[in-house]
Design a binder for these strands. Sequence first.
DNA 1: AACATTTGCAACCGCGTGCTG
DNA 2: ACAGCACGCGGTTGCAAATGT
Length: 203
Amino acid sequence: MAPKNSEASTNSKMVMNKGAWTGEEDRKLAEYIEVHGPKRWKTVAMKAGLNRCGKSCRLRWLNYLRPNIKRGNISDEEEDLILRLHKLLGNRWSLIAGRLPGRTDNEIKNYWNSHLSKKINKKEKKPAECSTPQDSITEKTCEAVATGQETVEESSKGAAIPELSFDVNELFDLSTQGTYDLEWVNKFLELDEDPWLAVAEDR
DNA sequence: AACATTTGCAACCGCGTGCTG
DNA sequence: ACAGCACGCGGTTGCAAATGT
């Protein structure tokens, strides 16, 4: 996207920049955080010489500049995991993203809204037609989610975690276990947060 | 080729929560 | 106990790119 508001900084009323980030802004932000760490975002914005609000800086850092960020190419396994976790947690994007190393809540949320929600709607409309032995794990998971007792729409409406009225073992009892097995699921709520942020805290 | 529509995603906004003085 | 601030989250918007007509 082309920057639209980069001229805002020249305004004498100090109107904050909005819209797409420029390469120069990214560089300033990354350099400042490299030295001082990702905290006190209001200060970061000012000290880094960015005519941006702290919120904007934080978002840019978390979603794009942070080390070890993965961009695009969400694998079948990741997609499958997103589906399962969404079934379990609802629209708790940060929690879901926390279980997908290198992925951000914003990316997961966007991916859900633009890809997975449509897939699931499709499955809800015609669940019988779509299931073939060749289906990928995500296809199967989509169908499991779409045909489950609790619909995705219901779990998406409220901010609260949907009631765990279903059997977790049943939910995860799909043909492919791989990395995302039951033991992992049972532990996932207890795991600590992003190790990089923990390092940043120590600075 | 030109225009209209849809899609994908980066970024913003408002609100809730936790921390600090 | 309270107010103010900073942070984090989820919902929503805006717009470029892709696709359709």
